[in-house]
Write a protein that binds this DNA or RNA. Structure first.
Lengths: 204, 204
DNA sequence: AGCTTGTCGTGACACCTGTCATGGTCACGT
DNA sequence: ACGTGACCATGACAGGTGTCACGACAAGCT
């Protein structure tokens, strides 16, 4: 019997996922949480064998939750189940100690298989995503450039970004210019779009 | 026995949703589709009583699908089941002939109830969303302003927007300026963010 | 007929942005 | 010790952006 923890902020999806997996004879859902910061506590209590984590959750995101879970409950393997197949998320998830990464667009039947494989110590990765991840490589952005781009997401001016990051306006412009160049964009808004699409920015 | 059609682009969610609803004695899933443009054909063939439509789908979005479905199969009632609780989507959904609108964050138990209520001719609307929708009112943007803002989403320059819309650059700037003023934003990027959050722009 | 509103356009102006040159500090690996 | 690269900053400049004033036309309303 494989014990499962399911973490997803959408109650409907979470419940439906649990219902689907509960149908399998060798799977048992022992915990459900809606927030990233509830994952560790729930795992400590219910001792699951595999945790299914969504990337996008309130509290802390699934990536950070995976990191914490790896330290707190090392016996629990992590399978990321996410909506968006951003190649960058895959890298971050693997770096965070996840054993698998599948998008919600995969056939339903494959999920149970993925859970069993992860439980037996194998790694499960969406093949198309893995290919994208390889061809595209790592994020070309430096930490600071990513910070500035992240701050630019809400659409504020350079002055606003500089204020929130405690930087000079000129520095912000330089980082933005560099990020725009690296993303092949022509404006900061376009650079944000490219970076988000590739998973180079943290979920929000 | 209530016959159901489920339309959602995420295979996992679609299957899980079907599994969950199949558990109810009086519900029967007779069709599942992954694209908006497959809804009408599937409905013609399987004659469902209620169609559960996601707003965001490839092909055509759930709003447009609801409009087509209303004309093609008038006996089939529409229940929108969406991820994002944008108040504007609710208005558009109701205008498109939907009988209900719930977000995926609602408790699982309530979905079956919502289906039954919709089937019996009642309207089902997420209460918090309805409140937001009332307080906030309609979109203040004119059609053209929405068009320009929509074109500005990808992050292109004024020249690019003007080219795609066959307008003068000055006109584009005027519409943008007006939209920025109406949204209370200070830059076009912020205006886009506000408009998207409120559902004043079409899904994409 | 008058009025309002949305749409499209021009021109002008202050300001913001993106880019570049330049220079400094710090951490890192050789 | 030295080179490299990320990081921070300043200053300057061309060009893009947001705003405003003004005009013109069509559609709808009183």
């Amino acid at each position: 019997m494989i014990r499962l923890l399911i973490a997803d902020d959408q109650a409907l999806v979470r419940g439906a996922l649990a219902a689907l997996l509960q149908l399998e004879d060798d799977l048992e859902v022992v915990a459900e949480v809606a927030r990233g910061d509830e994952v560790v506590d729930a795992a400590r209590e219910s001792k699951p064998d595999v945790a299914l984590l969504d990337v996008e959750m309130p509290g802390i995101d699934g990536l950070a939750a995976a990191r914490l879970l790896r330290d707190a409950v090392p016996t629990c393997r992590v399978l990321m189940v996410t909506t968006f197949g951003r190649p960058g998320y895959l890298k971050q998830a693997m770096a965070a100690g996840a054993s698998g990464f599948v998008v919600k667009d995969t056939p339903a039947r494959q999920l149970a298989d993925a859970v069993r494989r992860v439980h037996s110590g194998l790694r499960v990765v969406d093949p198309t995503l893995a290919a994208e991840s390889l061809t595209q490589g790592d994020s070309p952005l430096t930490d600071r450039e990513a910070d500035v781009l992240q701050a630019a997401r809400s659409g504020g001016t350079v002055a606003a970004i500089a204020a929130t990051l405690f930087l000079s306006e000129g520095t912000v412009r330089n980082h933005l210019s560099s990020a725009i160049g690296k993303t092949g964009a022509r404006t900061r808004a376009e650079a944000v779009r490219v970076a988000v699409d590739n998973g180079w920015l943290l979920p929000h």
